[in-house]
Design a binder for these strands. Structure first.
Lengths: 249, 249
DNA sequence: GTTAGTGAAATTGTATACAACATGTATTCG
DNA sequence: CGAATACATGTTGTATACAATTTCACTAAC
């Protein structure tokens, strides 16, 4: 997902991890079902050792669960799980915004964030957003969130947020794709952009509590998207990892 | 740490993980230095495969870092890292308390929590606390925090908090041992106990914001303990994982 | 004296063989 | 006909062998 670059010459373990994650998110593996190592080895064309390393990492990441009798299975997520994961992300991003505001940020890094907001503004202000506009929006939105985490200047917090956003539907852009299919999409994006602007303002003015509250509310837009997307089969299909969501859990 | 039980007949991987963690926390391995697998294999009496599985898990846990050229090294933590880790824990426990308050808890589970608070009260109200009192306090305090997380009734949040508290100095009882050596210890414990009582009250009255604020402030007691403990060599030695802390980072 | 280069040793990444365990099926006994 | 047991099969956990890479020391040249 958007993390390419070194396409070749990476270790077998990383290859296995990326390939497995993709298989899981696209729903090629049924939740709850054991992942047979030998079958997967044949499928991915590597040996058991790097595959097992990938399984361990994906379990820690939260995508897999250990089977008591041994081995791993794809984890299933209830709507409540996803709701809470979004709330956790918002809470941690709120903490990052508060840290940035309270501790102060250099003008150069704040300028970077402002540039990012300006770029988002330029995309969002179009009266009608095309599919390409959304394609430009997603990476820029991710950049905004990544910059915010950098501004907090906290290695432990960066780690936690990385982990919390590794679940695709908990990530800042998790529902943007699905959102594009919704009639409310434009309105939601405009509100999100307002949040982007306000949190920069709050950080600049060193208003920690305000910055925190804004980022929390910002994440809650994803709650709304979650509900809207899951109630329409067409947009639910566009949610990455939709196959892992079990209704009524 | 406090998680014994199946002493024998556990898998080699778990054995390796526990043994390695202990070695790291007691400072037997210098931070930044590569952990040679073959040497460790000899030391622990198992083969490389389960050892490597343990290394991967401990890296995900945050105790180790990957060396770019391969292998793992013990991670070093600055005082700022620990401060932030405590703040993260407080933020997540605050979220748990808010969830519990907002969503409501069954009277039986609330009663459990109240029992726990009563047991802590009984320990703390002694005019002079002995070493045995501290020994009774620590597990009961951990039980309080564990119950609180259960009351939130959120698997994702439980996972995040488990992870955030896996670093020993970020855990709720991380500094209690060191605290015992401090003259301020009793006063701090009384304040902590006030927090315990208040958060139960807030949860019972479904005051989410209040419950959250109290748990945040509760964790900040650890900030004070951190500063006090690190400034006195005697108590710093009692902080688990003290060897991983690098002054001036 | 310092630096670049070369070689050997050590170390990790990967593959595979083996053993222990779990699982599922077929058969036999009640 | 049903249930329990034994056996065969498949799967994971572990050990180890091998290959590729890194690291370190030693030497030589500037």
């Amino acid at each position: 997902m958007a993390r390419d670059g070194d396409e070749k010459s990476q270790s077998q373990t990383v290859k296995a991890q990326l390939a497995l994650r993709e298989l899981i998110l696209e729903g090629a593996l049924a939740p709850g079902e054991r992942i047979a190592e030998l079958a997967m080895v044949d499928r991915l064309g590597l040996s058991r050792t790097p595959l097992r390393a990938a399984l361990i990492r994906l379990e820690q990441e939260g995508l897999l669960e250990e089977i008591p009798s041994g081995g791993y299975a794809v984890r299933a997520f209830s709507e409540a799980d996803i709701f809470d994961s979004i709330e956790i992300r918002g809470t941690l991003e709120g903490l990052a915004a508060r840290f940035a505001a309270e501790r102060g940020v250099s003008t150069t890094r704040l300028a970077e964030l402002k540039e990012c907001v300006a770029a988002l503004e330029e995309i969002v202000e179009a009266p009608q957003m095309s599919a390409e506009d959304f394609a430009r929006y997603v990476p820029m939105n991710e950049r905004f969130h990544a910059l915010l985490v950098e501004l907090a200047d906290s290695a432990p917090l960066r780690r936690e947020i990385e982990r919390a956003t590794s679940l695709p539907f908990a990530s800042p852009s998790g529902f943007v794709e699905a959102q594009a299919a919704l009639p409310e999409s434009r309105r939601i994006l405009l509100i999100a952009q307002e949040h982007h602007r306000l949190v920069v303002d709050a950080i600049q003015n060193r208003e920690g509590a305000r910055a925190e509250a804004i980022m929390r509310e910002h994440a809650r837009l994803a709650h709304r998207n979650l509900q809207l997307a899951l109630r329409s089969a067409a947009s639910a299909a566009k949610v990455p990892g939709a196959a892992l969501i079990r209704r009524r859990g």
